[in-house]
Structures are given as structure tokens and as C-alpha cells.
Simulated assay, not measured.
Amino acid sequence: MKRELISLIVPCYNEEEMIPLYITEIEKIMINMPEVDYEYVFVNDGSKDQTLKVLKEQALLNSHVRYLSFSRNFGKEAGLYAGLKHAKGDYVVVMDVDLQDPPELLPEMYRLIKTEAFDCIGTRRSTRKGEPPIRSYFARQFYRLINRISDTEIVDGARDYRMMTRQMVNAILEISEYNRFSKGIFSWVGFETKYLEFENKERVAGETSWSFWSLFKYSIDGIVAFSEAPLDIASIVGFLSFAAAVVLAIFFAIRTLIFGNPTSGWTSLITIILGLGGMQLLSLGILGKYVGKVFLEAKRRPIYILKETDEDLRNHETTK
């Protein structure tokens, strides 16, 4: 009887140290899951270190290892999409290579998705222990904000780490938009999802490529991708500015009729001009963000470009 296949999608950017450690830990888990077969789908996202070299070495040593290598850095979202597109498994797992996503949850995820008819077993951190306080604060505020202004619920602390059925993966692949926010897409497609909680873990080796600024920009992309609330805010700000201008015009007209037209008032005039100008620039900035996203979608550029894969490596080795 043919065993079911689990695909492990692992985006990598400058992770030469972590790849062998990751494979070692996963092998310890998979040896206790003899009822399934598995494959690694590493996605080298234009790494500047020896990540590609390490992947080639691992692919020659381990028949379970597959890899995709981009022509340049396209970002984690492109890596996830490429991995999903090339995964062959009946069940697909998305994981980070840094082992902050605990591999020991894999057997329980497989058991739940098989026995309780879930389409997806996701994970979420129960605590943010070890994370910088400022990052934790803004992360909580982001989840609180986006769940208020968006119709798509995004679970606080939810990780990309999850196991999905082939049906759910195919549904995600139908969403081929250029501007991607996977946490929102996973939720938007629907399907029955159960979350497993775990405590936050530190990286085993290497350094994260996610700075506070990159996470902030990522959160803005998520808000723009799954909510029109900023556009509504821009409209409201514009209306309130116009209303304030009308009220002030009436006020100053009445004051002039009663008290005359004194030369004083320069400060209030400049304050009003700066205030209204700032509101207009804010509204234009919000509109510009959406227009920019539409512009990128209209160009219909590919989400990623492959430079080479493990198949190229194996074909080369065969023809030697």
C-alpha cells in the first residue's frame, strides 16, 4: 500500500548554519512516523551566504531533500508560494528553518488532520517570552487592529507553521496575486482549522533576517491587503477637515463683523494651513499605497523566478 506523502516547505535566506541542524531534527521525528513518506522542499530566497551550496550537498546525501533556488531575493511570501506550488505531498507543512517551529508537533498535527477531519492544523505561540518588549507590544496591537478593520480573522500569535490538506493547498494556489500576505490568505480561503499552542523558542543558530522595520512594513502590507478601512479613514479625515474649515470660516467671519479685522491671527492661520495640509498628505499617502499595489498587480510580473532546482543538480550528476 502506497504511503501518504508529507511535503515540508522551508523558505531559507542566509541559513547555511541551520539547514543541517534542521534536517537532523526532522529526521528524528520522521523515523517515528513510518506510516508516511516525506520530502523537504527548501526554497533558497537569493541567499548571500553558502545556503545554496549546503542545499546541494544535502540533496546529494539525502534523497528526501529537494530545493528551489531563486534568481534573487523575492521575499518570504514568494518563497512560500513557490514551495506550495512545487510540493507533491498529500499533506503540506510550512515551517521555518530556525527550529522556532517545534518539529515535535508534527506527529500530533498529522494525527489530528487524519482523525478529526480538519483541513488545517495551525500553531500559535502561547507566550512571546524572549521577544523584545517593543516588538511584542506592536505585534499585539497589529492583531488587535487588523481583526477590527478586516473581515478576515487572523489569530493573535498564529505562525505560518501549519499542516494543510491538498485541497486547501490547491485553494491557496488559486490566489496568485503579487502582493501576498499568507497569514491572511490561510484564513481567507476558509476550511476547518485547529490551532496547537506552544511556548516561544529561541533560534538554535544564525541570526534572524526580520528587523523591526521589515516587520512593520509587512504588517502594513497585511492591512492594505485585507482591509479597505484606511481608505475609509482617508475619506472621513477629508470630510472632517472640510467641516472644520467651514466652521472656522463662519467663526472668523462673525468675529470680524463684531470686533473688526485685527492684524493678529497669523499663528492660528498657519496652524490651520499646516493641519489641513498634513491631513491631505496623510490621505494622499493612504491612497497612494493602494494605487501602488494596484500598479504592481496590473504589471502581472511573476511572483518569483527560479534559477535552478535539485532536478538540475541530479540530472547533471547523472550525465557525468
Score class of each variant (00 low, 15 high):
residue 77 E to R: 05
residue 264 S to E: 13
residue 232 D to N: 10
residue 316 H to V: 11
residue 275 G to R: 03
residue 149 I to Q: 00
residue 281 L to T: 13
residue 166 R to E: 08
residue 132 P to F: 07
residue 21 L to P: 02
residue 33 M to H: 01
residue 42 F to G: 00
residue 283 S to G: 14
residue 45 D to N: 09
residue 101 D to P: 02
residue 186 F to R: 00
residue 14 N to R: 06
residue 67 Y to D: 00
residue 306 L to V: 13
residue 253 A to Y: 12
residue 285 G to W: 08
residue 303 I to R: 06
residue 45 D to S: 02
residue 167 Q to F: 11
residue 40 Y to V: 07
residue 312 D to T: 02
residue 25 E to I: 01
residue 262 P to R: 05
residue 2 K to V: 14
residue 317 E to V: 15
residue 168 M to I: 09
residue 20 P to W: 02
residue 275 G to D: 10
residue 175 I to L: 15
residue 52 L to E: 06
residue 75 G to A: 01
residue 95 M to C: 05
residue 31 I to W: 06
residue 127 T to I: 08
residue 302 P to F: 06
residue 130 G to Y: 04
residue 156 D to E: 15
residue 260 G to N: 03
residue 171 A to W: 00
residue 200 N to Y: 13
residue 27 E to H: 07
residue 175 I to F: 07
residue 28 K to S: 13
residue 318 T to L: 15
residue 82 A to V: 06
residue 218 Y to N: 14
residue 13 Y to E: 03
residue 304 Y to T: 04
residue 212 F to V: 12
residue 49 D to F: 06
residue 95 M to V: 12
residue 295 F to S: 03
residue 35 E to D: 11
residue 296 L to F: 10
residue 303 I to A: 06
residue 131 E to D: 11
residue 58 Q to T: 07
residue 150 S to M: 05
residue 220 I to H: 06
residue 179 N to C: 13
residue 30 M to I: 08
residue 196 L to C: 08
residue 152 T to P: 00
residue 5 L to M: 14
residue 14 N to A: 02
residue 49 D to R: 02
residue 142 F to V: 06
residue 147 N to I: 03
residue 317 E to D: 12
residue 10 V to D: 02
residue 2 K to D: 15
residue 70 F to C: 07
residue 77 E to M: 10
residue 110 Y to W: 12
residue 112 L to P: 07
residue 262 P to A: 05
residue 205 A to F: 04
residue 177 E to H: 11
residue 60 L to Q: 12
